[in-house]
């Protein structure tokens, strides 16, 4: 699969893969691209071009994960990006899925009250995910920022935020949600709502998988490395 470069026109990225638009937005880059290149627009919006490309290419190609390159970026860039993805999930993806599940279940026959459990399952999943985000934002991210900007302020040198297990858990439950709907939904439902819901779930699944991978494979090794330097 192709890899985008800084000389590509920004509009070309979206034309090739429309699902990159939310990622571009996440960096604060707005439409009205004209014929400007990735590099030109990144400069205009004060975005690190190499970092932007690494993220965009990771999204575009599921086999692309430039670990060495990502590790070379400042952890502050990574944290900033992770915060932006959290905000995107919290304000858009999660409420969107919630609304679609609600509408999907409203379109099923009312006597199938067991189907409501799918919504209960999702709400419990969402609550756990939000707790996880909150913990990262209140504990992990500030810690990383202090570690980079004021390393002498660091008291606890044995920081161990091993979220890999938790991420795996989140992954399982999202997978279960998909299977519960795909395999066990009653056949009477609004198919347009269902199509949209499944599309949104698959998109979110891919997004959050990349997000978790950034935390586990990039941010955590960076923290471990910085801690060694500080000691």
């Amino acid at each position: 699969m192709q890899e985008f470069t800084k000389g590509d026109k920004m509009v070309h990225l979206v034309q090739v893969n429309y699902s990159l638009l939310p990622v571009i937005h996440r960096f604060g880059i707005r439409l009205g691209f004209g014929n400007r290149t990735v590099q030109e627009l990144c400069k205009l919006y004060g975005v690190n071009t190499d970092f932007f490309l690494a993220i965009v290419n990771t999204f575009h190609n599921k086999n692309f994960f430039p670990e060495t390159q990502l590790l070379s970026f400042s952890p502050l860039l990574i944290v900033d990006y992770l915060k932006k993805t959290h905000a995107y999930y919290v304000s858009f993806s999660l409420p969107q899925i919630e609304d679609l599940i609600h509408r999907l279940l409203l379109s099923t026959p009312q006597q199938n009250s067991e189907m409501k459990m799918i919504e209960t399952f999702y709400l419990a999943y969402k609550r756990k995910l939000l707790e996880h985000f909150k913990e990262e934002e209140e504990t992990v991210f500030p810690y990383v920022e202090t570690l980079v900007l004021r390393p002498s302020d660091i008291q606890n040198h044995n920081f161990d935020a091993n979220y890999e297990k938790e991420h795996e858990h989140v992954d399982f439950e999202l997978d279960d949600l998909k299977n519960l709907i795909l395999k066990y939904l009653v056949p009477e439902y609004d198919e347009l709502v269902c199509n949209k819901l499944m599309e949104e779930i698959y998109r979110f699944e891919k997004d959050i998988r990349d997000h978790s991978r950034m935390e586990d494979a990039i941010l955590m090794p960076q923290v471990a490395h910085l801690l060694k330097v500080v000691k």
Binding site: F172, E173, N179
Partner: peptide, 18 residues
């Protein structure tokens, strides 16, 4: 068989299947 791994997921399946 079910493709469901988590306990909450299995619980929901058990309810759906009565």
């Amino acid at each position: 068989k079910l493709g469901i791994k988590s306990i909450p997921g299995l619980t929901v399946y058990a309810i759906i299947q009565k």
